[in-house]
């Protein structure tokens, strides 16, 4: 398969970014989307290491030389595209990418790393952008800084229990339904697709997933109101937006975490707010 790849290039957070277009050829339909990017990058490495090949590739695959070639090199067009990725099994949450206008691409319920080229039309142009959100500054190209999500978790996304102080694991019964629902919420992978998709840049689904997962279990229930208050306060502080119930987050969540968890978060928050 052959594709035109229109990809966001940005040297770092301080510089302005722009789109650059490249061509990739001989892509197997069984290759994953990230493998396609690996191939593009390998191509770009060779364009650097081998100036003759590079002169053919610097502008949409056309030959260029002299000043044009120099400029292309200086602009970093020929450097490999940076993108976050790690497990490539859809679970670590490292991969991101806005592909053809959707978080994690055109398929529902998959992460970018689990997206395969057979889902794209041969010969088409694929547009790739980083997560766009005020809370996620660009590090380079398609890589963004999602440490704000860690900061929210640090504000209260835990049960305050010390190692070695727990009683026997079967001493507190938990109904299967509750455990299953808690697990549904806990399947959030922290990729940030919800934030990137939300028109307000809200992290409510991310927080809702954590608060709800713990609130459903007796172990997490004790702190659940405080947890909700602390995490939401941190979210506001870090420049995320508010929730206006568009449900876009749920639609684009690769793990289909339901917005009912936002409702549970709101209940916990309200309880705390009323107490105040």
């Amino acid at each position: 398969m052959k594709f035109k790849i229109k990809v966001w290039r940005q040297k770092n957070a301080k510089t302005k970014g722009h789109f650059e277009t490249y061509t990739v050829d001989n892509i197997s339909p069984d290759s994953s989307f990230l493998e396609m990017l690996d191939i593009l990058n390998d191509q770009l490495v060779h364009q650097n290491s081998d100036p003759i090949a590079f002169s053919k590739g610097c502008e949409n695959g056309e030959v260029c030389s002299g000043e044009k070639l120099k400029r292309a090199k200086a602009e970093g067009k020929a450097l490999p595209v940076s993108f976050d990725h790690d497990c490539r099994e859809g679970i670590c949450g490292a991969c991101s990418l806005y592909i053809n206008g959707r978080a994690h691409g055109p398929e529902n319920e998959v992460t970018t790393c689990q997206l395969f080229m057979r889902k794209f039309k041969d010969g088409s142009t694929i547009t790739i952008e980083p997560w766009r959100s005020a809370a996620f500054p660009v590090v380079k190209d398609l890589v963004v800084d999602r440490s704000a999500l860690d900061k929210i978790m640090q504000a209260g996304g835990f049960v305050d229990v010390r190692t070695g102080s727990a009683q026997d694991a079967n001493s507190i019964l938990i109904s299967k339904e509750k455990a299953d629902e808690s697990m549904d919420a806990a399947s959030c992978i922290g990729c940030g697709a919800c934030v990137a998709t939300c028109k307000n840049g809200s992290a409510m689904l991310f927080i809702g997933a954590r608060v709800s997962s713990l609130a459903l279990l007796p172990q997490g229930k004790i702190e659940s109101t405080k947890r909700a208050m602390d995490m939401i306060a941190k979210m506001d502080e870090l420049g995320f937006g508010a929730c206006t119930n568009t449900r876009a987050c749920e639609m684009e969540c690769p793990k289909r975490v339901s917005i009912t968890h936002i409702a549970r978060l709101n209940r916990e928050f309200l309880k705390g707010w009323l107490k105040k």
């Binding site: 727990a166 079967n170 299953d180 997962s213 459903l216 172990q219 997490g220």
Partner: peptide
Amino acid sequence: NLIIDHCVAQGVPFAREYGGLL
């Protein structure tokens, strides 16, 4: 065995039987 106890206390949603046991 201590690991399982601690992880349950942390709120790890392990699979359960209908009676509520792990």
